[in-house]
Every structure is written in structure tokens, then in C-alpha cells.
Amino acid sequence: MAAIRRNIMFDIDARDKFLRGMVMLAEESTEFMAQDVLDYIQSSGVQLPMSGIDQSLTTYDLFVFWHIYAMNVMYSTGNAAHGGPVFLPWHRMYLIRLEQNLQRVLNDRNFGLPYWDWAEDGELSRFDQIRTDLWSADYIGEPRGRVRSGLIGRMRVKLLGGTIDNAPVLFSISPRRLERRSGLSSRSRSLPNQDDVAWCLNQQEYDRPPWSANSISHRNILEGWIDGPQLHNLVHVWIGGDMGPGTSPNDPVFFLNHCNVDRIWESWMAENGRTYRPSNNEGTPGHRLDDLMVSILADPMTPAQVLDPSDWYTYDNLVVI
């Protein structure tokens, strides 16, 4: 039976299981130390320098690592997870694998990841956007500063993307609480709203040349590059703090954001069909329909294999414009 993904604000059971499951993954030990991660990076040939303390990592830390690892597999346009057509199917695969692990630790095969309908909050005043129940101890904790309250207050950041001597580095840092700066960035005082969602849903093409951050297409507008940051990108920038660097899955709100992004894509497909471009004889390698997507914690899939997610999950509500 496929899971049903529900709005976190309207389903207390989904919320409680999500929070509990995230903490369980964040406390589930693995055999991996930070040094093992660095050895893995080097043996695979990906250019991602790493620096910091050696420490044990949890299953949740490995999901954080997967994201920044894929980001550093560079294609001729974008990378293995962003800046091109593969953005939506890669994150769909990533969320499916996280959802399966949440089902495992919760011992509930019907658990579905909840989503945060940020466009609804984007209709509120900027003042009220950080005062919804989402940013409370019962949900995901404080919108600004260190996250100390609720279950998420138990989570710790260990892997952090950054720079040293003007070069990119993955830091292994002494565990610390999550940090947020919601609504404080001068670039993004407000969340995306329903008009922004309508803008991406009104696009007739999933993607199109040049298959990049310059494409006028459903994928690229939803990713948030046109007149950016918008939509998905804007949510990252609006929250700021640990949602900024390539280790942004450190914050569980990453998954609430991407579940909503995935729901918007599913809404687009409900109107436009399960179509995807580039096909196998166009576009750039890595983004094509049957290209393997970079996966390090479970078997890789292709965009074609995730176009119809109904074997895994459905949504309680799609976006209707």
C-alpha cells in the first residue's frame, strides 16, 4: 500500500511521527566515522575537500553527506542534483529513500513524509510568517537563532559545507544545535506565495534548452532561478542559517520544503502528463530520462523510474490553480 503524504499543519499523527523518526535517524549510529567519509570521497574521485574532527556519524548525517556529495558531481550544466532537469527527480529519489528509512525506524510501512505548504504562509504578512505554529516547540522549533525547543532541539549539526582559504570544504565540526535566520535576509524578506506557485504550474514544458538555470520551464521556475531566488531556492534563503550551504538537509525543514516542491511537480504532471525532458538523445549527460542518478545510500534510479511515484506514495491534496 502506498503511503499518503499529508500537510504537516493539518495532521498531528504525521507531524509526530516525522519529528520522532528524524530524531531516531539522527541518533542511529553507523560504522562510519568522518575519516571514512573522506576516504569514500577520495576513492570515488569526486573533488570535495574535507577538514575537521574525526567523529562517529549517524544515519541522518549520511543523508546530509549524500546531498553535498551529489552537489559536487559536476555536469556540463548544473550538478547531479541541481541547476538542471534532474533537480526534481533526484530530490524525489532522495525523499523516497529518506521516507523508507523513516518507515523502518518507526516500524510503520504506511508512514508518509509530511509537507509544508509554504505558499500558504507566503500569503501572510512578513511579520506573521515566522509566527505560525510550524515554528514552535510542538513542530520544528525556533525560526531564528539556535533551535533549542521540541524534538528538533535534540538534533546536532556535524557536517557543514563552507570555505577555507577561499576554497570549498566539507567541515566535520564539533556537534552543535541547528541555526536559522528566518525572514532576516535582505534578499528574501517574504516566503513565496500562491501566485509564484501558479507561475511555475502555468508552464507548458517540464524543461527546455539550455537545460540550465536559464531555462524558462516548469522545473527551473520551481527550482527558483528565474528572477531568483524564487520558490524552492527562496525557501532555503528565507530560512537561512543551516539551510544555506550544500549541507542544508541538516535542518529537517529541508524535507518539508522538498516534499512540497515534489507535490507541486506532481500537481504539474496531473495537468500536463508524466512527461520529462531531456529524452535520451538530447540535453546534457546526467540529466537525461534514463541516466542513473547519483545515489550512495541505496540503489540508484533514473528519472524515468520516479516519474510515477504511486507505488511509493500519493498526496492528500494537489495544488489547483
Partner: peptide
């Protein structure tokens, strides 16, 4: 779901890249 836990998969399976 995967037969292996994420840590076991990472330890035992090399990453694959598009053809």
C-alpha cells in the same frame, strides 16, 4: 526499501555515475 541500512550500503557499494 533497500535491504541494507544506509551505512551498510555506503560501506559496501561503490557509487555509480551516468553512463
Amino acid at each position: 526499501g533497500s535491504l541494507l541500512k544506509p551505512g551498510e550500503y555506503l560501506k559496501n557499494v561503490k557509487p555509480q555515475f551516468p553512463g
